[in-house]
Amino acid sequence: MKKINKMKIRHFFMGKSFNDGFIGKLSIYLLLIIIGFVYIYPLLKMFAYSLKDLEDLVNPTVQWIPTKVYLGNYKISFIVLNYGMTLIFSLLVTLVPAVLQTITTSLIGYALAKFKVRGRTIIFAIILLTYLLPVQVYMIPRYVLFDQLGILETAWAIILPALFGQGLSSAIFILIFYQFFRMQPKALDESAEIDGANAFQTFIKIGVPLAGPAYLTAFLFSFVWYWNETYVSSLFIGSDLYTLQLKLFNFTSQFNMAQGISEQALNEAIRYSATILIILPVLLVYVVMQKWFVEGIDRTGITG
């Protein structure tokens, strides 16, 4: 009787194997919490700081929780970033390229998966190469080209390459679609063909609806990557039309330009409130679509 109890206790703490015993579980939780703190800590700190007014900022006893919720920093950031207009423009150069890039890459991904035509291997090789070739190599001639087309410093400079499948990380999305369409049973296409559908009808009626997860994944990653991109957009969009990210990058000069709006000097709290405002849109998308980031990757069969 006593022996069984001992075993029970042992099983409770150690488990039948390491990862289902109490100690194993505890160490998994501890590790996850401690390391997770690395990501949460700066965000929480930024958020706490952004709510502090000047008094709280200089008060050494106020570390984490401000004495009162002060939204003045956000007000200033709102004006400095010109948040409304800039947000609309940022969405224009984020959402539109993301949608267009998703459509174009799905077309070529579909063709590569369904039709075994000559030249397919070459196309594949080129796609992989475009992924490995950093944009820095060909962005100067692109800059000249856009200049000649007169679309420099307009949203077209970002949208046009995306429309033609030459946008940000296009190669990855083509591969996602290729993997996904390849897994669709051929019998479905054949039956559609027997029913008299042509290739485009088959694509629209059968290919696309079945590829929902791939489309969602490609769109989400496109959206996030375009949102976070600053290197190329700072070159092509330039100084007149700023995205939110670029305004944050040049926050000090933006703040000085907008001076007079606040009598306050630029401080950390204002800076952090601006940062929070800039990650807010993607954060919202993330909260709503969180599970698709994981399931999408899983279902699109990148791993296959």
Binding site: T104, I108, F115, V137, Y138, M139, I140, L145, G165
Partner: peptide, 25 residues
């Protein structure tokens, strides 16, 4: 023909926005 028409947008884009710029660069 069908396959290339599906790929045409990308191929065209690749020529204009990537390949020619690579050689120009």
């Amino acid at each position: 023909l069908i396959a290339w028409s599906f790929m045409s947008v990308w191929v065209l884009g690749f020529l204009i926005f990537t390949m020619i710029p690579i050689f120009t660069s």
